[in-house]
Amino acid sequence: MTSTDVKSATGRYPIPVLFLGFAALLLCLVLSLAAGARSIPVSTVVAALIEGGEGRDARVITGCSSPVV
């Protein structure tokens, strides 16, 4: 296999592979927050990550997923 063969094989689908990898990472993040030590519905996890949310569950999610600076 020459260098041109490798380049075309690895550069053929970079965007879909990157998108699928990002989607899988996001799914793992949501599922890990939803199925942690405290059971939180997925809809609450998504709302807390997108809108900030209110209540104890939202504080648990935003406090655990955001680093303190």
Results as ranks from 00 to 15, higher is better:
Ile61Met: 07
Cys64Leu: 13
Thr2Val: 02
Leu49Asp: 01
Pro67Cys: 03
Ala9Lys: 06
Ser66Asn: 13
Val30Lys: 02
Val69Arg: 05
Leu20Val: 07
Val69Trp: 05
Phe19Ser: 13
Ala37Leu: 12
Cys64His: 02
Ser32Val: 10
Gly55Pro: 01
Leu27Val: 11
Ser8Gly: 02
Val30Ser: 03
Val17Pro: 08
Ala58Lys: 10
Lys7Ser: 10
Cys28Glu: 10
Leu33Gln: 12
Ala47Met: 06
Leu27Lys: 04
Asp57Phe: 03
Ala37Pro: 09
Arg56Gly: 14
Ser39Leu: 04
Ser43Leu: 06
Gly36Met: 02
Ala47Ser: 14
Thr44Val: 15
Pro14Arg: 14
Val68Ser: 12
Pro16Cys: 05
Arg56Asn: 11
Thr10Glu: 03
Arg12Gly: 05
Ser32Gln: 13
Ile40Glu: 07
Val46His: 14
Ala24Thr: 14
Ala24Met: 10
Pro16Phe: 09
Tyr13Leu: 08
Val17Thr: 14
Cys28Gln: 14
Leu29Val: 05
Met1Arg: 13
Leu25Gln: 10
Gly55Phe: 06
Val6Leu: 07
Phe19His: 09
Leu33Arg: 10
Arg59Trp: 02
Ala24Glu: 02
Ala24Asn: 01
Asp57Lys: 05
Ser3Phe: 05
Ala9Glu: 08
Ala58Tyr: 01
Ala47Trp: 01
Ser65Phe: 03
Ala48His: 00
Gly63Trp: 07
Leu26Gln: 11
Tyr13Arg: 09
Leu27Glu: 05
Lys7Gln: 11
Glu51His: 13
Pro14Ser: 11
Gly63His: 01
Ile40Asn: 06
Ile40Gln: 11
Leu49Ile: 08
Val45Asp: 13
Arg56Trp: 15
Ser66Ile: 03
Val30Ala: 11
Ser3Asp: 12
Arg12Ile: 05
Ser39Glu: 13
Ile50Asp: 13
Arg38Val: 15
Ala24Asp: 00
Arg38Phe: 14
Thr10Arg: 09
Thr44Ile: 15
